[in-house]
Design a protein around this nucleic acid. Sequence first.
DNA 1: CGATAGTTTGATATCCTTCAAAACCTGTGG
DNA 2: CCACAGGTTTTGAAGGATATCAAACTATCG
Lengths: 208, 208
Amino acid sequence: MKKPAGTVIIEEGDRPDDVLLLISGWAYRYKILPDGSRPIMAYLVPGDLCDIHIFILETMDHGIALLSDAEIVSIPKERMLETMRARPRVAEALWWATLVDEAVLREWLVNMGHRSAYERIAHLFCELWLRLSEVGEVMDHSFHAPLTQEQLGDTMGLTPVHVNRTLQRMRADGLITFEGKYLTIRDIDTLRDIAAFEPNYLHLKRRG
Amino acid sequence: MKKPAGTVIIEEGDRPDDVLLLISGWAYRYKILPDGSRPIMAYLVPGDLCDIHIFILETMDHGIALLSDAEIVSIPKERMLETMRARPRVAEALWWATLVDEAVLREWLVNMGHRSAYERIAHLFCELWLRLSEVGEVMDHSFHAPLTQEQLGDTMGLTPVHVNRTLQRMRADGLITFEGKYLTIRDIDTLRDIAAFEPNYLHLKRRG
DNA sequence: CGATAGTTTGATATCCTTCAAAACCTGTGG
DNA sequence: CCACAGGTTTTGAAGGATATCAAACTATCG
């Protein structure tokens, strides 16, 4: 099923009945704070599954919305459970996905707390580059990144103004270009160094 | 098995063969960055299980160490798997625990990125107060919190100096006392307000 | 082609860090 | 029971990173 950018897929407090699989496009997990700010806690990219929560937890503690036009497939809870029962490998894959999500959250937490704006953004770009490479979305050092500078700020705990100035510096340093929602990584090696990027947390080499 | 404060239980890169259950005392998840800093990404309190990772993921992407003297029980991987197979309720409980860990990480991420030092610490104290209440470790608005101000800083992405000044302000405001590793919450209501603390992410009301 | 969202710019304010040193605990050995 | 040692907390002064506010500029899309 196709949905336009901005669509809210699940809201905080919901008790959804389906698991959603993102086929194309990007989504993000968010909360809304009393002061109106809208922190972003994760990006979902093609191939990602939104919310195994629904089997176990009462309600969503956050929302999920689309960053770009996207194609999603909705899998009924019941079918999901059957499959998991019948095919342990599928159940294991779900465990795997959940544990990796957790690992990414831990790394993002480190990122927020212990790195400067410049390093933080560099780290995010390294991660996106790797994750998107895995699903074949990187062409020629570039990928589609449907993010505004404000959303980048909501993700990194920075003002849009400061994100802007930081991106300018990155461009000036010859590390990236970011035009028309396309991000080009011009120097992944220095980007990695700056961010002290250690990809082990993505657990990319999946077990036999 | 009893272990003294400071013991490293699992290190980054390890591939442990047991799941560990924390009976008494506190532990914490940490990473070590190239610059030598040591971010803390989670606290484990009595009743918490360390690392279901081991069934699925290759290696630990972080370490776990003890904040205080602690008693831990080590459960062999094999026994754990058998139990999960034989008793679906246990497997479900493990899912539940993992998903709650994830929810806590998301909330911590929001905390780091979108709240001031004062609010952040207030939020942490609210969370600890609730989690420890659940396991009967809160007596008379007080609980044992074996944390130095430096560790608090590593957790919140703050300098020990600033943690110190912030705690002083909290004391002056009559919200807490924190002496001899005992934290007393003197005014939970204002603390909650300051932190905009919304406990839903802890998913305390477990499903029937 | 105009409206609206997004980006860029400048000036000023604030929170938090850094560095350095003093004061205070806590436990240990004599 | 005292004295000392190491870790922890506290204090002060000064600097830096990021926020805030406000406005201009520039894409984008119907």
